[in-house]
Structure formats: structure tokens, C-alpha cells
Design a binder for these strands. Structure first.
Lengths: 233, 233
DNA sequence: AAAATAGTGTCTCTGAGACATTATTGA
DNA sequence: TCAATAATGTCTCAGAGACACTATTTT
């Protein structure tokens, strides 16, 4: 990509979107990182992301980058803005402001594609990723994104975005346990998710094929908040 | 301000900070709006704000704009990032991304100064401001900022930022009542603010001068979260 | 003394957390 | 039949919400 000339009355910035892409893989709370190619921070692990286009809305840019990096479209993925990071020295190339987003989904674990700037992409456990050195200020963004997810599942339906469309309550419980890193009492858990009207809806089906008693299959019931909230102490 | 030439490998943006400046004036939950001068949306009411400088951090720019508009320094003002608004058409001049912030303080009601782009500045009740037509997408930003404050006072110490350094519990209760637009039961209120250790601390002083029994004077105790939270239903 | 405002305690009901057994399936 | 997993109910304690009177000051 070559440089272009621009005029502006005000200081100019490049605007990027960076993505904290979260999922549960084999029961492990996981985040997608890419190894950077190109020039800046080459070889280091970073959050996927890229620059916002001339006529692109921020959330559109985030969806585009998500699809470029994971091959996953927007249907079954929850995407929300996290925060914006704009320290003057955060990118050595030029002044860059990054609007970070959190993406949550399931079934993204298969078709990873290297994006334009990425030479490699890989799922990390969130614990490992938080302990690693990441490019730019991505450690901070990751930390904030993980905390966002951990708090959002308390009182919203975000946990359902970690599940497939059809799921069982034990699966949903394992989502909470993976994200919070602690075990929940099954009876209290079921009481709470079934207390909020329209949070989950029974389908009448059962999920066979496991080793024990079949679990009932549920779908999201449409409620977007969980009241009273799940508690994580 | 004249145009300058810049080069960039990526699409360029101007980055602004806009401020939802909230306070309680005479018991009324209020927000600061400015009437725009200059060219764009001239004469319309808007949130105070301005462009981020070449070497300026986002939060620094927000503090600078706040001081320019209100004459209030950062000591007794709480300032936090709200969200970033970047629709391609949100500013007709050029592509502008606005990083909105919420500012909360007390005693800002006196020394209003018109900022660079503002010909006039005035406190509005939040209700009136929400019902008004504002420039750009500032109605959306205002709505989000107000909702942020309304939810933050549930479980953080944000309500204390609406008070002077020394305050009474009836004053603090009126903060909650003004922001939520509903009355709270005094006995339940006092029970909750005094239950959280180090949320408020008695000074031993009394506030005389009112018409009735003097109220005890408190200061913030240092706790940043309120557990269990205040409830607003 | 009258008016204004601050300060205080109890009861009931809902929800949180702790806890163990039965039910149903595949191997 | 055994191993694995899912499903289910009760008790106790903490906190929420409703509720009214006394205390202290100024005028």
C-alpha cells in the first residue's frame, strides 16, 4: 500500500479496529491471536484488526476484519464496541487510534484464514494470552475485553453467544465455568437461568450420543438480560 | 485554522472528543450544552468538544476541552471514556470519529466560558436536553452518557462525584433521586450507603444553616464500588 | 410553639448459597 | 451392571422493600 496525500484542517489519524475474539474451545475460554507479518512488530502476536475504510462505519469494519480473520460471518457472532485506545505513542508508524471490539461466537474454531497483515493465526487459552507479550497495547485491550465478557455474562444473554444455536444447560453452565474459572452449583445454576422468563426455551428435543443421560435441548428465548443476575463471587 | 498537507498509508480521520458534562444544579440533573458558532451546524446546540491534538492522549484532550468549556480543572471532576461514534456521515466537513466521554462534577455551575467553537454555553436539565434537537449525532451520545451515569451510580462511587468534597447523606440521596427521577426511602438508603465499608466516612462535623436539624457531614471513604449495589427499580 | 429537616429500627418476603440423590443412557 | 452424565428440592441466611416516629434546629 502506498502513501497518499491528504489535506485536513485538523490533526489526522488513522483509525483501526482491533478485535478480542472470544470463544470456548473444548471447554477452554480462548482468544484468537495473529502473528504479525509486514513491518511493524513483525513476528509478534497481536489481536486481529485492521484499518477502517474511507466510507466504512466502525462496526462494519469490525465485522469485515472478523470475517477476514476467521472466515465467520456475522450471523451467529455477537460483536460490541469495547473502548478506544489512542495513546500518542501506541503505534510507531503514525498516529493511530484503535477502536477495540469484543467478538463472541461459537463454531469459529475451524476455518481460520490468515488476514492481510497476519502470517499466522491461532487460538490461545485466555490465560496464556494474558501472560504473553503482545504487540502494541494489545495486552491492555485483551485484559479489558476479557473483563468485559466476564462481567457481561452476569446480567446479559452474552453467555448464549458462546453456545451453538441449540444447546443444553450443562453446556451453558460450562460456558460460565470456563469464563469465570470456577465451578458453579448445578441446581442453583438451573434455578437462575430458568427463573428469568424467556431467557432459555425448551425445544422438547434431547441430545443423545453422550455417555450418560441425554440432556434437554434449549434455544435462546429472546430475553437479553438476566434478572436477577448470575453471581460470580 | 488553515488546512495542512499530510501523508498517510491509510484513510485519514480527524479525531474529536465530545463531552457529556453532568452535574446537579439546584437539585436538577443537568448537562452542559454549547451553541455552535463557526460554519457547521451553526446556531444548533451541541455537546462541548473539540479535536484531539497531534501529540495528545484522548483523556488529556477531554480534560483540556472540559477546562476550556467550563473553566474547571481536573481535581474534583470524574472523567471516563464513554464510547466512540464514527458513522461515515456524522460530520459533513470531513471524516470525523468522536471519542465521547462522560464528565461528572459539582461546583461547575459558575464559571462557564465560551469555547473556541462555541458562541454560548448553558446548563440544560437532562430531560429538556434529551427532548431537544442537537447537532450531529449528539442526541445519541447524550442518551448513552446519561444511561451510563444512571447505571454507574448503582454499583460504583460515581454519585460521590456529583457532591462537593464534604457532603451530607440527604444531599447524596438527592443526587440519586435527581438522576433516577424517583424518590428513595431514606432509611433504606442510609442502610445501604453505610453498609459498604469505607464508602462514606463521618467527619464529626455538622452542617448548620438550614432550617431544620443539622445534618452530619461526610467525606468519601475511598471505596470505589458499592456492594450490595443501590437498586433503581 | 410551629415548621422544617435529619435521623433511626423492624418485619416480611425474596433470592443466594450450601447440600445429595434419583433418572437415564451407552458401554 | 456399571459408569457416566443429567435432572431435581429444601433449608438457612442475607438483603430488599415497606413502613412512622423522634430529635434538633431556625424562625
Amino acid at each position: 500500500m502506498s502513501r497518499k496525500l491528504y489535506t485536513s484542517k485538523y490533526p489526522i489519524f488513522a483509525v483501526a479496529v482491533d478485535l478480542v475474539v472470544l470463544t470456548i474451545r473444548d471447554g477452554v475460554f480462548s482468544v484468537l491471536l495473529v502473528r504479525r507479518g509486514g513491518d511493524t512488530h513483525a513476528g509478534e502476536w497481536a489481536l486481529p484488526g485492521g484499518f477502517v475504510g474511507e466510507q466504512e462505519d466502525l462496526i462494519e469494519a469490525a465485522y469485515r476484519e472478523l470475517e477476514e480473520e476467521t472466515g465467520v460471518g456475522g450471523e451467529r457472532v455477537h460483536l460490541e464496541q469495547l473502548a478506544t485506545y489512542g495513546h500518542p505513542d501506541r503505534d510507531p508508524r503514525q498516529r493511530v487510534v484503535s477502536v477495540a471490539h469484543v467478538a463472541v461466537g461459537s463454531g469459529m474454531t475451524e476455518d481460520l484464514v490468515g488476514g492481510s497483515d497476519a502470517v499466522d493465526a491461532r487460538w490461545w487459552s485466555v490465560g496464556e494470552a494474558l501472560a504473553a507479550d503482545l504487540a502494541f497495547d494489545h495486552h491492555e485491550i485483551l485484559r479489558d475485553g476479557v473483563e468485559r465478557a466476564r462481567s457481561r455474562i452476569e446480567y446479559t444473554d452474552l453467555a448464549l453467544s458462546f453456545c451453538e444455536e441449540r444447546f443444553t444447560l450443562p453446556e451453558l453452565q460450562r460456558v460460565y465455568e470456563a469464563i469465570w474459572g470456577r465451578e458453579l452449583d448445578t441446581r442453583n445454576f438451573v434455578r437462575k437461568v430458568t427463573r428469568t422468563r424467556d431467557f432459555v426455551r425448551e425445544t422438547g428435543e434431547e441430545q443423545r450420543g453422550g455417555r450418560g443421560r441425554p440432556a434437554k435441548v434449549y434455544v435462546a428465548g429472546g430475553a437479553t438480560s438476566l434478572v436477577p443476575p448470575m453471581t460470580r463471587d
